[in-house]
């Protein structure tokens, strides 16, 4: 039995063993092993030269990583929590993402920026943002977000090996999810979506923390509505596996995007637009979105209003222009 945290930890360790240019640093990643223990034991095994704590300064952490990358290192830095990554945004958007272009490829930035993200953990303010859309909109960056234990290992290894910079979003809520697998895990590479549950009536397009939710909703839809629901796990937002989205929607003719990120100008809007543009003649209903609300992420007692739920997904599925209206079983 392996947890997602263990898979991520093993991915870091294996990458460091395989490539001496991989260095890990950030806040509390050394002696403590990270607040989520993702870097547990790395300083002990690889020494403080390869895994170390830094001052509490996210912009400095990413900025120093840029300089190290200019010297051929492969830094993997941790931002600790989604909202704490914002001070580094200028470094990420103006330098990590652009240095390759500004130097015509003479300088590469093979940096991985790990961002534990998303809600559903009862966190206080600034601990539950879904900011992946902000990064997905910056040319030059790749954006990954695993939903399974195997993907956590495989996508992180790929991110570290990637010559392009990757912002790696780790769903906090799934850190303690488990799988009966052996490490090192195997899975398809990045840039490819995976069908987690095949279906013929409608496609739920989702990623990261919302994948288990979508699977739960799909099961409920089958039980309560008799719908055959496909669940497509996108796995990476950049690059986005457009072909798999187009293929699935063309087959089912209906789709709902499920994300924790707010709806307005968010990843769900991009995915819905893509499906409309490419699958217009296959669609029996408009693509719908079930997302976080367009409000600051609320405190624990209120987060059930904010987060996509099985209930909201089922209600949206019911609303997809079916030829014969459904009545939900009790």
């Amino acid at each position: 039995m392996v947890t997602m945290v263990q898979a991520l930890n093993r991915a870091l360790g294996d990458a460091m063993r395989a490539d001496p240019s991989v260095v890990v640093f950030g806040e509390d990643v050394g002696t403590l092993g990270g607040v989520f223990r993702v870097t547990d034991g790395l300083t002990k095994e690889f020494g403080p030269d390869r895994c170390f704590d830094t001052p509490l300064a996210e912009s400095g952490i990413v900025g120093v990583a840029v300089g190290m990358a200019m010297q051929g290192l492969r830094p993997v830095v941790e931002m600790q929590f989604d909202a704490f990554a914002y001070p580094a945004f200028e470094q990420v958007a103006s330098h990590v993402a652009k240095l390759r272009n500004r130097t015509r490829g003479a300088v590469q930035t093979p940096i991985v920026i790990r961002v534990p993200y998303g809600g559903g953990i009862g966190g206080v303010e600034h601990h539950s943002d879904s900011s992946e859309g902000l990064y997905a909109q910056v040319p030059g960056l790749k954006v990954s977000t695993p939903a399974t234990v195997s993907d956590a290992y495989v996508l992180l290894r790929e991110a570290i090996a990637d010559p392009d910079p990757v912002v790696f979003f780790e769903p906090k809520r799934l850190y303690w999810s488990t799988a009966e697998i052996d490490l090192p895990a195997s899975a398809p590479g990045s840039g490819r979506a995976e069908i987690r549950r095949p279906g013929s009536d409608v496609t739920l397009m989702t990623y990261g923390p919302s994948v288990p939710l979508a699977l739960e909703a799909a099961d409920a839809a089958t039980a309560e509505l008799g719908l055959d629901v496909e669940v497509l796990d996108l796995r990476t937002l950049v690059p986005l596996d457009e072909a798999s989205i187009i293929d699935s929607i063309s087959r089912t003719g209906r789709g709902v995007v499920v994300t924790e990120a707010p709806s307005f100008a968010g990843p769900a809007a991009e995915i819905a637009a893509l499906a409309h543009e490419h699958c217009f003649y296959s669609l029996a209903a408009p693509i719908r979105r079930v997302t976080g609300l367009d409000i600051p992420y609320p405190p624990p007692a209120y987060e059930h209003h904010y987060l996509p739920s099985v209930e909201r997904i089922l209600d949206t599925l019911l609303d997809l222009e079916w030829e014969e209206p459904f009545t939900r079983a009790a």
Partner: peptide, 29 residues
């Protein structure tokens, strides 16, 4: 120009953002 060959980073426009890069380069060396 080629920053690696000349050991001159690209001229930086966003103020002071290149200073951590200088630290990273010297540190890695």
């Amino acid at each position: 120009y080629d920053p690696v060959a000349s050991r001159v980073a690209p001229q930086c426009t966003p103020l002071a953002t290149h200073l951590p890069h200088a630290v990273g380069v010297a540190w890695a060396a």
